[in-house]
Simulated scan of single mutants.
Amino acid sequence: MSATSSESPIPDYLSLLRLDGRAIIVLGAGQGMGEQTVHALAQAGARVLCVDKDAQLAQRVASAVGGIACAADATSRADMQRVFDTAREQFGRVHGVVDIIGVAGIKPLAAVDDASWSQQFDIVLRHAWLAIQIGGEMMKADGGGTFAFVGSLAGDRAVPNEVAYATAKAALHHLVRCAGAEYARHHVRINAVSPGFVRTPRLVQRLSDANWSAIDEAIPLGRAATPAEIAGHLLYLSSDLSAHMAGEIINVDGGIGVLAAVPELNFAPSATPTP
């Protein structure tokens, strides 16, 4: 503490953002929000295990920050156990997890078959459950830690043609709330960021310039987020600046989530009140 006031000690706020000596696993580290988050955590002093299904992407990102690469399928229980075992072997213990993984399948409800429904829940939800079940118990035994997940605006709003993805993200949000409440008493804090539209490499490839113009027009701040802007919030949730947060979902969507989907209305002038 750097000073005192009449009410309480005044902390060194910048030091609360530091992660010096802490070991953090980043799931989905290879590109986009994951890559930016790896850099954000490393700049704050963290030691990072960079996990991606693509071994080359994991190694590229790890090499850039002096981290350790780990190729794994996060939807596999055996692979996820290996990820946490590797982190413990390399770092001694795990202080945090940031889970970026998620891919949106875009199709109307009638076109969603059994395989694509199951695939969406695997790629959006299963790895998060495995991470908490395996890593949460490990952190609990070691005295605490943090989880920061990436949810979605689609988990709280009806987004056209994203019923399977949106339902899985809604389940992820509630997993964060329920697990956050359960593990908070053990000093394991579980929270999530809920982005709106983000210019990730994958989404940039899938959407046309006209699509992006329409998206930017719909967002009150006038543009979609960058991956770095989401990474900043994941850094916050991994740091002691968020020490009193558990089971929370932070919306980072440029204001689009607060809008009501209603037609533009033209009201007639009000009648002059009678004295």
Rank of each mutant, 00 (worst) to 15 (best):
A110I: 00
H233A: 15
A231Y: 05
E137K: 15
L241I: 02
A225C: 09
A261K: 13
L27R: 02
R185H: 12
H186S: 14
N251Q: 15
L234V: 05
Q36H: 08
D209K: 01
H174S: 08
N266I: 11
I24A: 00
Q119W: 07
M1T: 15
R177T: 09
G32P: 05
N161F: 08
A40F: 00
G28W: 09
A29Q: 08
T274P: 11
A3S: 04
Q205G: 14
I100N: 14
S76Y: 08
A74Y: 02
G102L: 01
G143E: 12
S208F: 08
Y13H: 05
D122I: 07
E137S: 15
A184R: 03
H186G: 10
L19P: 06
E35M: 08
A168K: 01
A171W: 05
R206Q: 09
F149E: 05
V204H: 05
A46K: 02
A64E: 10
T200N: 11
G254W: 13
G247S: 04
S208T: 15
L234I: 07
A87W: 09
L17R: 05
L14A: 08
A29H: 08
A55E: 14
R223I: 05
Q119L: 12
A78Q: 13
H244G: 06
V252W: 12
S242L: 01
P227L: 07
P11T: 05
A58P: 11
W129L: 10
R189D: 02
G196Y: 08
G32N: 11
G135P: 04
S2M: 06
Q81I: 07
T200H: 10
V65W: 03
V163A: 04
L17Q: 03
E217V: 00
G254Q: 10
V65H: 04
T274N: 14
T4V: 04
Q43V: 06
R88E: 11
Q31M: 00
R202W: 04
N251S: 15
L207M: 02
I24R: 01
P108N: 00
G135N: 13
A218I: 05
A44L: 12
S239C: 01
A23Y: 03
P9I: 14
A231G: 00
H39M: 11
C70E: 06
R206I: 01
R223C: 11
P273A: 11
V112K: 04
Q81C: 01
D99H: 15
G145V: 04
G45V: 09
A72M: 12
A111H: 02
R22H: 10
A225K: 01
Q119V: 03
T4P: 01
A228D: 12
F91G: 07
R206L: 00
G96M: 03
I134Q: 10
A62S: 14
G102K: 04
M33Q: 15
G151N: 14
E229L: 06
G66E: 08
A210F: 03
A131P: 11
A231W: 10
S118D: 13
T4N: 04
